[in-house]
Design a protein around this nucleic acid. Sequence first.
DNA 1: CCGCTGATTCGACATGTGTCAACATGGGCG
DNA 2: CGCCCATGTTGACACATGTCGAATCAGCGG
Lengths: 119, 119
Amino acid sequence: MPNAKVLPVRATDAAPCCPPLTERPLTAEEAERAAVMFKALGDPVRLRLFSLVASHEGGEACVCDISDVGVSQPTVSHHLKKLKEAGLLTSERRGTWVYYRVEPSVLAAMGRILASAPV
Amino acid sequence: MPNAKVLPVRATDAAPCCPPLTERPLTAEEAERAAVMFKALGDPVRLRLFSLVASHEGGEACVCDISDVGVSQPTVSHHLKKLKEAGLLTSERRGTWVYYRVEPSVLAAMGRILASAPV
DNA sequence: CCGCTGATTCGACATGTGTCAACATGGGCG
DNA sequence: CGCCCATGTTGACACATGTCGAATCAGCGG
Protein backbone atom coordinates (compact mmCIF):
# COMPACT_ATOMS: atom_id res chain seq x y z
CA MET A 1 0.00 0.00 0.00
CA PRO A 2 1.83 3.07 -1.20
CA ASN A 3 -0.53 5.47 0.45
CA ALA A 4 -1.08 4.98 4.13
CA LYS A 5 -3.83 7.55 4.18
CA VAL A 6 -6.79 6.66 6.28
CA LEU A 7 -10.18 7.96 5.37
CA PRO A 8 -12.47 8.56 8.31
CA VAL A 9 -15.27 6.41 7.09
CA ARG A 10 -17.34 7.45 10.01
CA ALA A 11 -19.44 4.34 9.73
CA THR A 12 -20.77 4.96 13.20
CA ASP A 13 -22.66 7.92 11.84
CA ALA A 14 -24.10 6.55 8.67
CA ALA A 15 -24.79 2.90 9.26
CA PRO A 16 -26.90 2.99 12.41
CA CYS A 17 -28.72 6.05 11.25
CA CYS A 18 -32.25 4.83 11.37
CA PRO A 19 -34.30 1.70 11.59
CA PRO A 20 -36.47 0.57 8.70
CA LEU A 21 -39.31 2.95 8.06
CA THR A 22 -41.76 0.18 8.68
CA GLU A 23 -40.36 -0.70 12.09
CA ARG A 24 -41.23 2.36 14.11
CA PRO A 25 -41.75 6.08 13.56
CA LEU A 26 -38.56 8.02 13.08
CA THR A 27 -37.63 10.65 15.58
CA ALA A 28 -37.12 14.21 14.42
CA GLU A 29 -33.36 13.81 14.57
CA GLU A 30 -33.36 10.53 12.69
CA ALA A 31 -35.60 11.97 10.02
CA GLU A 32 -33.36 15.00 9.73
CA ARG A 33 -30.31 12.85 9.13
CA ALA A 34 -31.95 10.39 6.77
CA ALA A 35 -33.66 13.11 4.76
CA VAL A 36 -30.27 14.56 3.87
CA MET A 37 -29.35 11.34 2.12
CA PHE A 38 -32.65 10.98 0.32
CA LYS A 39 -32.61 14.61 -0.72
CA ALA A 40 -29.18 14.11 -2.20
CA LEU A 41 -30.64 11.47 -4.52
CA GLY A 42 -33.78 13.49 -5.12
CA ASP A 43 -32.39 15.22 -8.17
CA PRO A 44 -32.26 13.51 -11.56
CA VAL A 45 -28.81 14.83 -12.39
CA ARG A 46 -27.38 13.73 -9.05
CA LEU A 47 -29.03 10.35 -9.39
CA ARG A 48 -27.42 9.86 -12.77
CA LEU A 49 -24.05 11.02 -11.52
CA PHE A 50 -24.30 8.70 -8.56
CA SER A 51 -25.24 5.73 -10.69
CA LEU A 52 -22.43 6.56 -13.07
CA VAL A 53 -19.93 6.41 -10.23
CA ALA A 54 -21.54 3.42 -8.56
CA SER A 55 -21.65 1.35 -11.72
CA HIS A 56 -18.27 2.45 -13.04
CA GLU A 57 -15.49 -0.01 -13.41
CA GLY A 58 -13.40 -0.22 -10.28
CA GLY A 59 -16.02 1.50 -8.19
CA GLU A 60 -14.66 4.92 -8.98
CA ALA A 61 -14.94 7.40 -11.80
CA CYS A 62 -13.13 10.49 -12.96
CA VAL A 63 -15.21 13.61 -13.32
CA CYS A 64 -14.26 13.69 -16.97
CA ASP A 65 -15.92 10.31 -17.44
CA ILE A 66 -19.26 11.23 -15.97
CA SER A 67 -19.71 14.89 -16.89
CA ASP A 68 -21.95 14.17 -19.86
CA VAL A 69 -25.33 14.34 -18.21
CA GLY A 70 -26.75 17.32 -20.04
CA VAL A 71 -25.70 20.14 -17.76
CA SER A 72 -22.66 22.37 -17.72
CA GLN A 73 -19.48 21.27 -16.10
CA PRO A 74 -19.74 23.67 -13.12
CA THR A 75 -23.17 22.26 -12.45
CA VAL A 76 -21.75 18.76 -12.44
CA SER A 77 -19.18 19.86 -9.93
CA HIS A 78 -21.86 21.45 -7.82
CA HIS A 79 -23.89 18.27 -7.72
CA LEU A 80 -20.88 16.13 -6.94
CA LYS A 81 -20.16 18.43 -4.04
CA LYS A 82 -23.69 17.98 -2.78
CA LEU A 83 -23.36 14.22 -2.98
CA LYS A 84 -20.09 14.43 -1.12
CA GLU A 85 -21.59 16.63 1.59
CA ALA A 86 -24.38 14.11 2.01
CA GLY A 87 -21.78 11.43 2.61
CA LEU A 88 -22.69 9.45 -0.47
CA LEU A 89 -19.46 10.03 -2.34
CA THR A 90 -15.82 10.58 -1.55
CA SER A 91 -13.35 12.30 -3.81
CA GLU A 92 -9.66 12.02 -4.34
CA ARG A 93 -7.38 13.97 -6.60
CA ARG A 94 -4.79 11.99 -8.51
CA GLY A 95 -2.73 14.26 -10.66
CA THR A 96 -4.83 16.09 -13.16
CA TRP A 97 -8.06 14.27 -12.51
CA VAL A 98 -10.39 13.92 -9.56
CA TYR A 99 -11.92 10.54 -8.86
CA TYR A 100 -15.19 9.95 -7.07
CA ARG A 101 -16.12 6.81 -5.22
CA VAL A 102 -19.30 5.68 -3.52
CA GLU A 103 -19.49 5.28 0.23
CA PRO A 104 -20.90 1.77 0.55
CA SER A 105 -21.93 2.03 4.20
CA VAL A 106 -24.25 4.91 3.46
CA LEU A 107 -25.78 3.07 0.55
CA ALA A 108 -26.37 0.09 2.79
CA ALA A 109 -27.91 2.30 5.45
CA MET A 110 -30.38 3.74 2.98
CA GLY A 111 -31.26 0.31 1.73
CA ARG A 112 -31.89 -0.83 5.26
CA ILE A 113 -34.18 2.10 5.92
CA LEU A 114 -36.27 1.16 2.93
CA ALA A 115 -36.18 -2.54 3.60
CA SER A 116 -39.61 -3.96 4.07
CA ALA A 117 -40.37 -5.86 7.18
CA PRO A 118 -38.01 -8.86 7.09
CA VAL A 119 -40.93 -10.96 8.31
CA MET B 1 -23.27 -12.20 -28.74
CA PRO B 2 -27.03 -12.33 -29.14
CA ASN B 3 -28.24 -11.82 -25.67
CA ALA B 4 -31.42 -13.83 -25.61
CA LYS B 5 -31.73 -13.49 -21.89
CA VAL B 6 -34.96 -11.88 -20.90
CA LEU B 7 -34.71 -8.94 -18.62
CA PRO B 8 -35.84 -9.95 -15.16
CA VAL B 9 -38.87 -7.77 -14.71
CA ARG B 10 -39.25 -9.06 -11.20
CA ALA B 11 -42.41 -9.47 -9.27
CA THR B 12 -42.39 -5.80 -8.45
CA ASP B 13 -43.68 -5.03 -11.91
CA ALA B 14 -45.96 -2.46 -10.42
CA ALA B 15 -43.00 -0.11 -10.36
CA PRO B 16 -40.22 -1.56 -12.52
CA CYS B 17 -38.62 1.81 -12.53
CA CYS B 18 -34.93 1.28 -12.50
CA PRO B 19 -32.19 -1.24 -11.94
CA PRO B 20 -29.87 -1.00 -8.95
CA LEU B 21 -27.69 2.06 -9.07
CA THR B 22 -24.62 -0.11 -9.00
CA GLU B 23 -25.70 -2.16 -12.00
CA ARG B 24 -25.51 0.38 -14.79
CA PRO B 25 -25.89 4.13 -15.25
CA LEU B 26 -29.46 5.29 -15.19
CA THR B 27 -30.92 6.88 -18.27
CA ALA B 28 -32.29 10.39 -18.06
CA GLU B 29 -35.84 9.09 -17.98
CA GLU B 30 -35.13 6.52 -15.31
CA ALA B 31 -33.37 9.10 -13.19
CA GLU B 32 -36.28 11.48 -13.63
CA ARG B 33 -38.73 8.90 -12.39
CA ALA B 34 -36.64 7.62 -9.52
CA ALA B 35 -35.70 11.10 -8.34
CA VAL B 36 -39.35 11.87 -7.76
CA MET B 37 -39.55 9.10 -5.19
CA PHE B 38 -36.31 10.01 -3.47
CA LYS B 39 -37.22 13.67 -3.42
CA ALA B 40 -40.50 12.79 -1.76
CA LEU B 41 -38.54 11.27 1.12
CA GLY B 42 -35.99 14.06 1.07
CA ASP B 43 -37.84 16.16 3.62
CA PRO B 44 -37.68 15.42 7.33
CA VAL B 45 -41.36 16.05 7.90
CA ARG B 46 -42.38 13.82 5.01
CA LEU B 47 -40.00 11.12 6.15
CA ARG B 48 -41.53 11.17 9.60
CA LEU B 49 -45.05 11.13 8.21
CA PHE B 50 -44.17 8.24 5.95
CA SER B 51 -42.61 6.24 8.75
CA LEU B 52 -45.61 6.97 10.92
CA VAL B 53 -47.90 5.49 8.30
CA ALA B 54 -45.57 2.64 7.42
CA SER B 55 -45.08 1.55 10.99
CA HIS B 56 -48.65 2.10 12.10
CA GLU B 57 -50.78 -0.75 13.19
CA GLY B 58 -52.64 -2.29 10.29
CA GLY B 59 -50.42 -0.58 7.75
CA GLU B 60 -52.59 2.48 7.67
CA ALA B 61 -53.02 5.60 9.74
CA CYS B 62 -55.55 8.35 10.13
CA VAL B 63 -54.31 11.87 9.61
CA CYS B 64 -55.36 12.65 13.15
CA ASP B 65 -52.92 10.03 14.41
CA ILE B 66 -49.86 11.34 12.60
CA SER B 67 -50.36 15.10 12.51
CA ASP B 68 -48.12 15.77 15.48
CA VAL B 69 -44.82 16.30 13.74
CA GLY B 70 -44.22 19.89 14.67
CA VAL B 71 -45.82 21.69 11.77
CA SER B 72 -49.28 23.09 11.22
CA GLN B 73 -52.11 20.97 9.99
CA PRO B 74 -52.22 22.46 6.47
CA THR B 75 -48.53 21.70 6.15
CA VAL B 76 -49.16 18.09 7.11
CA SER B 77 -51.85 17.89 4.47
CA HIS B 78 -49.50 19.43 1.95
CA HIS B 79 -46.80 16.87 2.63
CA LEU B 80 -49.20 13.97 2.54
CA LYS B 81 -50.34 15.20 -0.85
CA LYS B 82 -46.76 15.26 -2.04
CA LEU B 83 -46.21 11.71 -0.85
CA LYS B 84 -49.37 10.65 -2.60
CA GLU B 85 -48.35 12.34 -5.83
CA ALA B 86 -45.03 10.55 -5.66
CA GLY B 87 -46.90 7.26 -5.47
CA LEU B 88 -45.64 6.42 -2.00
CA LEU B 89 -48.98 6.68 -0.24
CA THR B 90 -52.60 6.12 -1.02
CA SER B 91 -55.51 7.73 0.79
CA GLU B 92 -59.02 6.69 1.49
CA ARG B 93 -61.79 8.51 3.23
CA ARG B 94 -63.85 6.54 5.69
CA GLY B 95 -66.44 8.69 7.31
CA THR B 96 -64.96 11.61 9.11
CA TRP B 97 -61.35 10.56 8.85
CA VAL B 98 -58.93 10.02 6.01
CA TYR B 99 -56.62 7.04 6.18
CA TYR B 100 -53.26 6.82 4.49
CA ARG B 101 -51.53 3.62 3.50
CA VAL B 102 -48.11 2.88 2.04
CA GLU B 103 -47.73 1.58 -1.48
CA PRO B 104 -45.54 -1.48 -0.91
CA SER B 105 -44.46 -1.94 -4.51
CA VAL B 106 -42.91 1.51 -4.65
CA LEU B 107 -41.09 0.92 -1.40
CA ALA B 108 -39.73 -2.32 -2.81
CA ALA B 109 -38.67 -0.58 -6.00
CA MET B 110 -36.70 2.01 -4.08
CA GLY B 111 -35.08 -0.66 -1.99
CA ARG B 112 -34.09 -2.51 -5.12
CA ILE B 113 -32.53 0.60 -6.60
CA LEU B 114 -30.37 0.99 -3.53
CA ALA B 115 -29.60 -2.67 -3.21
CA SER B 116 -25.95 -3.47 -3.49
CA ALA B 117 -24.83 -5.93 -6.09
CA PRO B 118 -27.04 -8.96 -5.58
CA VAL B 119 -25.31 -12.24 -5.01
C1' DC C 1 8.07 30.25 -16.74
C1' DC C 2 3.98 30.16 -19.39
C1' DG C 3 0.20 28.31 -21.26
C1' DC C 4 -3.11 24.45 -21.43
C1' DT C 5 -6.63 21.41 -19.65
C1' DG C 6 -9.43 19.71 -15.88
C1' DA C 7 -12.05 20.98 -11.87
C1' DT C 8 -13.92 24.01 -8.38
C1' DT C 9 -15.68 28.38 -6.76
C1' DC C 10 -18.22 32.79 -7.32
C1' DG C 11 -21.99 35.81 -8.63
C1' DA C 12 -26.33 36.12 -10.43
C1' DC C 13 -30.75 34.67 -11.73
C1' DA C 14 -35.11 32.05 -12.18
C1' DT C 15 -37.57 28.57 -10.25
C1' DG C 16 -39.01 25.39 -6.70
C1' DT C 17 -40.20 24.45 -1.91
C1' DG C 18 -41.75 24.59 2.94
C1' DT C 19 -44.51 27.08 5.83
C1' DC C 20 -48.40 29.45 7.74
C1' DA C 21 -52.96 31.99 8.19
C1' DA C 22 -57.24 32.20 6.17
C1' DC C 23 -60.72 30.07 3.87
C1' DA C 24 -63.29 26.18 1.73
C1' DT C 25 -65.14 21.40 1.83
C1' DG C 26 -67.28 17.47 3.55
C1' DG C 27 -69.39 14.49 6.53
C1' DG C 28 -71.32 13.23 11.25
C1' DC C 29 -74.40 14.61 14.96
C1' DG C 30 -77.48 17.11 17.87
C1' DC D 1 -81.30 21.98 9.33
C1' DG D 2 -77.21 23.90 11.20
C1' DC D 3 -73.25 23.53 13.91
C1' DC D 4 -68.78 21.50 14.42
C1' DC D 5 -64.85 18.85 13.69
C1' DA D 6 -61.46 16.84 10.51
C1' DT D 7 -59.03 17.69 5.97
C1' DG D 8 -57.96 19.90 2.04
C1' DT D 9 -57.11 24.15 -0.78
C1' DT D 10 -55.52 28.97 -1.63
C1' DG D 11 -52.60 32.85 -1.34
C1' DA D 12 -48.59 34.77 0.20
C1' DC D 13 -43.96 34.86 1.62
C1' DA D 14 -39.17 33.66 2.87
C1' DC D 15 -35.87 30.65 1.73
C1' DA D 16 -33.50 26.91 -0.69
C1' DT D 17 -32.07 25.04 -5.02
C1' DG D 18 -30.59 24.25 -9.88
C1' DT D 19 -28.42 26.44 -13.47
C1' DC D 20 -25.17 29.04 -16.10
C1' DG D 21 -21.09 32.17 -17.40
C1' DA D 22 -17.02 34.06 -15.69
C1' DA D 23 -13.33 33.82 -12.75
C1' DT D 24 -10.16 31.01 -10.09
C1' DC D 25 -7.37 27.14 -8.60
C1' DA D 26 -4.43 22.88 -9.61
C1' DG D 27 -1.35 20.04 -12.03
C1' DC D 28 1.13 18.84 -16.37
C1' DG D 29 3.97 19.65 -20.44
C1' DG D 30 6.58 22.35 -23.48
